[in-house]
Design a protein around this nucleic acid. Structure first.
Lengths: 102, 102
DNA sequence: ATAATATATGAATATATGAACATATGAAAT
DNA sequence: ATTTCATATGTTCATATATTCATATATTAT
């Protein structure tokens, strides 16, 4: 849990920064919350966060690439869901943080 | 702990994204780790992460503005330290995340 | 085969961001 | 007062990023 006064190596640092970078965008956060409890298709995600299908699709591909979401195809519809429960804890830690800073 | 299927309002979303954005940069992550255990002055931070004083100072002001670090002045020297222990848990959750993704 | 629907992708544009450089500020020492 | 040292700040530049628009792909229905 503790790092004992050493800075993680560059590869780890850069992976860490990249991971946080993914969460550092409102649209992506909204998408993650829209599928927080259950999977949704692209169209429904776009609707629930009031963004165009294209914009959402672009962001979904970034989220999928970073393995924050996974997808399941059913006919012509693609359903997205959180990749694992871990994502929720990151979002929650973030929420705690901003609440603490009132 | 759970959000019960609703997306936080726009203000919260944007605060969340902004918070993660701060963590989404290698230089800032390095700075945070360099003062993980104890305070350091700007010069020492710059040295420990191999960046110019100017670049570090700029990033420190961003970190301070976001209240991730606090500063203490002693003569002409300014010592920076993590603003609260909460920052560490965010870094740790991030580390767990990237380890999980192997 | 063609049309309709759902999603993905590529190019273009606008904006944001980090780093470098030069310079400014503030504090201590001479 | 002036020099020196530590830090901060303004500007510029290059790069990264998100969104839009147009189009492509894939799947189903007719």
């Amino acid at each position: 849990m503790d790092n004992r006064g050493c800075i993680p190596n560059d590869k780890i640092i850069s992976l860490l920064a990249d991971a946080f970078k993914i969460f550092g965008d409102s649209t992506r956060i909204k998408i993650l919350y829209s599928i927080y409890d259950s999977e949704l298709c692209v169209y429904d995600i776009a609707n629930s966060i009031n963004m165009t299908q294209s914009a959402v699709s672009h962001q979904l591909s970034i989220l999928k690439n970073a393995r924050l979401v996974k997808s399941r195809k059913e006919g012509k519809t693609v359903f997205y869901s959180l990749d694992d429960s871990h994502i929720k804890s990151i979002l929650n830690v973030g929420l705690n943080h901003i609440e603490e800073k009132e």
